[in-house]
């Protein structure tokens, strides 16, 4: 049970940060035109396909005792093998997905809507919010995609979290461990919990947009 709670806490926190970073970034990229936008988008798309283990390795090396950030011993930098370090890794995995899908959703909204709102005297901020509201289905999908990518992720959390009992063991790493131990019954039970969790979360998020979907 503690494993489930920790899974939700880590991935939930990571998702929160990813959403806070990803949605404004996606809206910005979707609506504005600036020099180097294509490059940023190309980088973002690359980020959407980042292999989690590579992210894990990167965060690991950064936070390691001999790494550039870990060597600072600053209280602001999370230590390796803590839930905070896992949140950092999962944020890096999830935020490009949130930003990318949000951007696509925003770009799919009729550009005339924004022009109209602007001509009616809305500020750029208000106009962006209007477009975001119009694209909310796509935005929810972006959040679901972000959550799905990290709740089921094992490579990065194993490397950065360390799968420590009572401390950084989450559902996915526990499944790997039980499989290694040969206790398949427990591994299967944990898998079912993970699947149910993932399914319930998605249903919940869809319900949040229930009205829109029923139109």
């Amino acid at each position: 049970m503690e494993i489930v709670t920790l899974s939700l806490r880590v991935s939930g926190t990571a998702l929160l940060f990813s959403t806070v970073i990803g949605i404004p970034l996606g809206v910005g990229l979707g609506l504005s035109r600036f020099l180097g936008r294509r490059l940023v988008i190309a980088l973002l798309y690359t980020g959407m396909g980042f292999p989690p283990v590579v992210v894990g390795l990167f965060v690991y090396l950064m936070l390691s005792r001999s790494g550039p950030l870990g060597g600072l011993h600053s209280p602001l930098i999370p230590a390796l093998f803590t839930p905070a370090a896992m949140v950092v890794a999962q944020c890096i995995i999830a935020f490009p997905l949130v930003a990318g899908f949000t951007m696509a959703a925003v770009m799919g909204v009729d550009p005339q809507l924004r022009q109209q709102v602007l001509s009616l005297g809305a500020t750029r901020r208000q106009a962006a919010l209007t477009v975001l509201m119009e694209a909310r289905v796509g935005v929810v999908v972006s959040i679901i995609a972000g959550f799905g990518s990290i709740i089921s992720e094992v490579g990065a959390v194993m490397m950065v979290g360390g799968n420590i009992e009572h401390r950084t063991r989450v559902l996915t790493t526990a499944i790997v461990l039980e499989t290694r131990k040969g206790t398949f019954d427990l591994a299967i039970a944990l898998s079912v919990v993970l699947l149910a969790l993932s399914f319930l979360t998605n249903v919940l998020m869809l319900r949040l947009q229930g009205r829109t979907f029923d139109e």
């Binding site: 289905v137 999908v141 398949f184 591994a187 299967i188 898998s191 079912v192 699947l195 993932s198 399914f199 998605n202 869809l206 829109t212 979907f213 029923d214 139109e215």
Partner: peptide
């Protein structure tokens, strides 16, 4: 809109059944 929902649901169901199929083997 409703088509999107349907596709999403089918995807979710397909994925979960495919995955549970995998774990059922061992």
């Amino acid at each position: 809109m409703s088509r999107q929902v349907a596709i999403l649901l089918i995807l979710v169901l397909w994925l979960s059944s495919a995955l549970s199929g995998c774990v059922a083997l061992p």
